[in-house]
Design a protein around this nucleic acid. Sequence first.
DNA 1: CCAAAAGTGTTTCACTTACACCCATGA
DNA 2: TCATGGGTGTAAGTGAAACACTTTTGG
Lengths: 226, 226
Amino acid sequence: MIPITPIRLTVDCVVFGLDDTDLKVLLIRRGIEPFLGSWALPGGFVLPAESVEDAARRELEEEAGVREVFLEQLFTFGEVERDPRGRVVTVAYYALVNLHDHPLTAATDADDVGWFALEDLPALAFDHDEILRVAAERLRGKVRYQPIGFELLPEKFTLSQLQGLYEKVLDRTLDKRNFRRKVLAMGILIDLDEIQQDVAHRAARLYRFDENLYRQRTERGFNFEL
Amino acid sequence: MIPITPIRLTVDCVVFGLDDTDLKVLLIRRGIEPFLGSWALPGGFVLPAESVEDAARRELEEEAGVREVFLEQLFTFGEVERDPRGRVVTVAYYALVNLHDHPLTAATDADDVGWFALEDLPALAFDHDEILRVAAERLRGKVRYQPIGFELLPEKFTLSQLQGLYEKVLDRTLDKRNFRRKVLAMGILIDLDEIQQDVAHRAARLYRFDENLYRQRTERGFNFEL
DNA sequence: CCAAAAGTGTTTCACTTACACCCATGA
DNA sequence: TCATGGGTGTAAGTGAAACACTTTTGG
């Protein structure tokens, strides 16, 4: 006795990227009704034969050309009147990419995909503004106690870039010396003995986040926190 | 062009309760196939006209007699092969109740509902052991930085009860003097100037968590943490 | 030589931790 | 009077925060 539930299931993805000045989010311009022409989060219906997370990865690649990125479930939006087409429940995900690997800064096709600063967003389709708000909140909360911020940086980064990331996400300034001391004391970064190239000032050392070091430290009771 | 997705949507609830000795979880014995006779989390299909959270509350009341409790979305389980009946996606919730208000410690009907210590669980239907594992992890993580633990206690409680709650959830002992100093310093408890009744030793003072105080402190930059 | 960002130590203060005894009550 | 949990203070150590100048490099 299984009730026939005409509830349809979709996924939406909030893709965060970081450039030199801002935390940004990837939006696509809708090519179909409803909300044709509006900016929206990439997403779509879950197919019967794929897991919900696979659906999110598929849509991310199809609609935004983004693949193999950090992706985590955000929240499921299950209110009744979310979609003019009928009852739709949406499992939202958020992704973190670095804008240098995904430099679609202007767009891919015509005007179809774009990065927007969080403080300067266009009107969005459906309840995507709400989804985005929840995602930004999650990112701000989680970045402090899980080492996910590195996903927003290139593999090799300077401590200033890392600090800038935290300042942008948390929206406050941090003390340079305290920040560097604390991060290095964690023992989860590897000093690559390389320096930045092509900068018009003293070149900074490059570091890389080491997943194995992080796991080792964590098993011994270490807790990431910034 | 909406694809017909024969994906069915359910909710499951992990209800945590605390008694004098253990952190417990509420299970029901299934009365229908599949897994007839197995213990399982309360839950069921989402109806077209209700929100997903409303469905969780409805199932909680119908199947477990639990109402008006703390309820929060946990995670959506969207793998393909979760249910022998076909493609089912489940939005899981977790609830916190205090066992004195909900003293179905043995059962309600016959043998239908029961509280089980987390360390002594029966085999569960579907992937409910996985859902429960995720829920316990979430509770352990969240109880430290959000004042949700109070939901597991009666409205009036002693500091020892509060400490016991944290010791059970976090599974470690805490120093009595340090715990009391820290909790009281937060300024979110109200000393009721009452004492415990009917105890065979010195009666302890009773306190109550004050939501308004908590909000005020939080707005001024206070962060709950234990 | 100037601009721009990199890099570096010390002091102060608050918070955490460890620790042991007397008190009040009911049985 | 005894058993049981309630209630209390201090000292030492650790970590956070505040703070300014010199170095390196390219233009």
